[in-house]
Write a protein that binds this DNA or RNA. Sequence first.
DNA 1: CTGAAAGCGCTTACAG
DNA 2: CTGAAAGCGCTTACAG
Lengths: 346, 346
Amino acid sequence: MGRPTIADIARQAGVSKGAVSFALNGRPGVSQATRERILRVAEEMNWRPHSAARALGGSRAGAVGLVIARPARTIGVEPFFSQLLSGLQAVLSARSVALQLMVVEDTEAEIEVYRRWSSEHRVDGLILVDLQVHDPRIAVLEALALPTVVLGGPGRHGSLPSVWADDREAMLSIVDYLAALGHRRIAHLAGLPAFHHTQRRMRALRDAAKRLGLEEAVSVPTDFSDAEGAAATRALLARGRRPTAIVYDSDVMAVAGLGVAAEMGVSVPGELSIVSFDDSVLARIVHPALTALSRDTFALGGQVARVLLAALDDPAGVRDVRTPTPRLTVRESTAPPGLGRASKTV
Amino acid sequence: MGRPTIADIARQAGVSKGAVSFALNGRPGVSQATRERILRVAEEMNWRPHSAARALGGSRAGAVGLVIARPARTIGVEPFFSQLLSGLQAVLSARSVALQLMVVEDTEAEIEVYRRWSSEHRVDGLILVDLQVHDPRIAVLEALALPTVVLGGPGRHGSLPSVWADDREAMLSIVDYLAALGHRRIAHLAGLPAFHHTQRRMRALRDAAKRLGLEEAVSVPTDFSDAEGAAATRALLARGRRPTAIVYDSDVMAVAGLGVAAEMGVSVPGELSIVSFDDSVLARIVHPALTALSRDTFALGGQVARVLLAALDDPAGVRDVRTPTPRLTVRESTAPPGLGRASKTV
DNA sequence: CTGAAAGCGCTTACAG
DNA sequence: CTGAAAGCGCTTACAG
């Protein structure tokens, strides 16, 4: 007889379709006894909601969207995103909400997707990543009135709720550690300067340098690619008085930097300490293993999903959420400066 | 007035809703003149299809699904998948078909997702990856009668159409190259033995070893994790007569193996040649850069999407598609054996 | 607390 | 080639 519908259940249970709908959705409007009977029948018939019908009747699409804008030459979906996705889906699928994922070339294309999804009623809400300093997406999303949670901040996210970790505190923890080891010349291979978190990290480094009286502390912006990471590292290490420590904004760039150090005969950590702002398998498997900032990205994804679900129920009742600051995992790529080639190991 | 519907267009153009639907979907049933008028009106009103309504009225969900089953400890979504996704979406979104992506723990959970999606009418078709030798998913999908394209093969995919590249030929090209360099003892750090392509690679190595009269050619199965890749490499290199070349089934394992070689003071490529079966940023950025099998994974994704779309239109009219065999990109990690520590440097 | 009805925005036979 | 109508499977006011 094909898939059972609520009409079948209603007939079987001897009630109206409306009553079945109320019972199935846990709403008031049916007595406890009939509710249980209806649920039992639905179970017996192995009924499942038809997502399209539900979306048409109600006004929910039953899905939320996530668009990642990355130029093709960068790594694409990095370990960070795969962890985030898992965390998101763990929470969303428990509520039967699907996740629409899309990878596009740039912010313009990203905005187009939001407009299309909105007009096609594809999604009920959105997750916004890679927050920019002057972010054109914010105004668009406010205008579309699509419930959205921003991963990033604090600040620069307009009236949209944000889930954020403190990149400033994180950067300070790195610099404090390096300074404690004795480093006085620290370089920072930053990501895209348009990103909000890039600016916060750069600013934190400047502030820390002043406070600690460092001899040098420079941030070099890049496009996050391994190519620019390698090129910038080469330039830094070719200087007369080169930095004794480099902080990389991504694990991919950090690994590329490690390769350049090997290529130029600069020992790590003997002559150069390396810290990655992102932790992942990459940071662990290279040699020497990289000291890196670790965080529970899976849990972060779950947190974002919960905030978004709350926003769907009550767009006005949602507050910004601060998540734990990433913590430094020390491995083999950091040491006091100037140990020289003696410590080069292996 | 809210979003325009086909009823609005019909009123404005002075025709029936049915006529509008035909015109908008490029079907016969309206004259050329009225078709053009309708399209013009739709354009003026900035009409967009409501995906749920379309799914309910027709019987299409407007989406296809891809489930990736990976235990949490492996890298998750690898570069391979991100490329594949991009290729899939490039073709699918041109036809306004969404992609439902889900990451789960194991095959059992994966099958559950298929059953749920099927009964909820969430997707019109599926893409199946990581084909197994005895794959329980095949029978389930045949029974669900959900149009599905298998990425993998040839063989073992039942009545489902397959898009495949020849892993056997690919392995032979590696072994032939290593043998030509003079290697006589070759090891292969394979992936999960349950995977169809793992078996084909292992068998290809055995056959090549016999044909070439190699002294030793052993395949060691692993779970694809960096941990097992490292452990197995350690065991191989600790032997008396160790292999002079190791072929790794994934880039992550190859990088882990490279780390172990460094740790044990085995120079690459002087004392050990390393080849990765997967190419990616990882293979390029490490030092020495890894010789690897390259393929156009983006194009592969596009190909899979095209076959799936064809299967949606006509499930019976789809044939298996063979894609180009991956080709060896030689970098710095391979050399004739026994050059010894002299060539270590850099 | 419950039932009968209308409606969500499309698609698709079925008559003309 | 075209129009009027029914129907997809739900949800949600609106009466009782």
